[in-house]
């Protein structure tokens, strides 16, 4: 029923096939099976950045994402790892005034950057207006996407103020507007599986209204 022979599932199988069909490819392909070392040594690099107003000088494995630098090295765990692949938005932070997915960028790429995380917006006793509005409108449930939603929301209001258009902007030649349709589109990179969307949009709308 299934013809599995048409497929090769590993590099080794492909190499084996290459050797068999080419007949003479002996030396080139065989060592793959014989490598016994533990791979390359990690490479470290230093990076300095400003995180929530505090200078951070860290030496990190080059493979460290900005997200893991924040969570595992600076212990700023407010920024969440939901997917680690830019597919959910839980890791959203504001870097040099723009929201990004901190999971899809390397820490070493942010020399001299100014990073704002959820911890930099407000504290439990001194909430940022967006944080307070999320509490008031119950714009969350489990809370895991919440820091990303809030960082994103704060940046979205700036994006609209700065006349960055969106997919739902009716006319590209007029200034971007604060509407719920705009907010829904612009917030769509932040997934909330608990489904607090309706409340989140109300929370952002209230803050937008007081600032518009």
């Amino acid at each position: 029923m299934n013809d599995f022979s048409k497929w090769k599932f590993t590099r080794r199988e492909v190499l084996k096939l290459g050797a068999a069909s080419a007949g003479a490819l002996a030396a080139g392909s065989l060592p793959a099976a014989q490598i016994t070392d533990g791979g390359r040594k990690p490479v470290n690099a230093s990076v300095a950045m400003d995180v929530n107003g505090t200078p951070q000088n860290v030496t990190l494995d080059t493979r460290t994402t900005l997200l893991d630098a924040l969570r595992e090295h600076m212990h700023l765990t407010g920024t969440k790892k939901g997917c680690d692949h830019g597919q959910c938005g839980a890791c959203t932070v504001i870097v040099d005034g723009r929201r990004i997915n901190s999971c899809l960028t390397l820490a070493v790429m942010h020399q001299g950057a100014k990073v704002t995380t959820i911890e930099g917006l407000g504290t439990p006793t001194n909430l940022h207006p967006m944080q307070a509005s999320f509490v008031k409108h119950d714009g969350y449930q489990c809370g895991y996407c919440t820091p990303g939603q809030i960082c994103s929301a704060v940046a979205v209001l700036d994006e609209i103020r700065n006349d960055i258009p969106s997919h739902v902007s009716a006319d590209l030649t007029v200034k971007a507007q604060f509407t719920t349709t705009e907010l829904r589109e612009r917030m769509s990179g932040n997934i909330c599986r608990c489904g607090a969307y309706s409340n989140i949009v109300e929370a952002i709308t209230e803050v937008a209204g007081s600032h518009a």
Partner: peptide, 12 residues
């Protein structure tokens, strides 16, 4: 461009 990805990804 605006039809693609998310605001965060487009910023990067």
């Amino acid at each position: 461009l605006l039809a693609g990805a998310s605001g965060q990804l487009r910023n990067k």
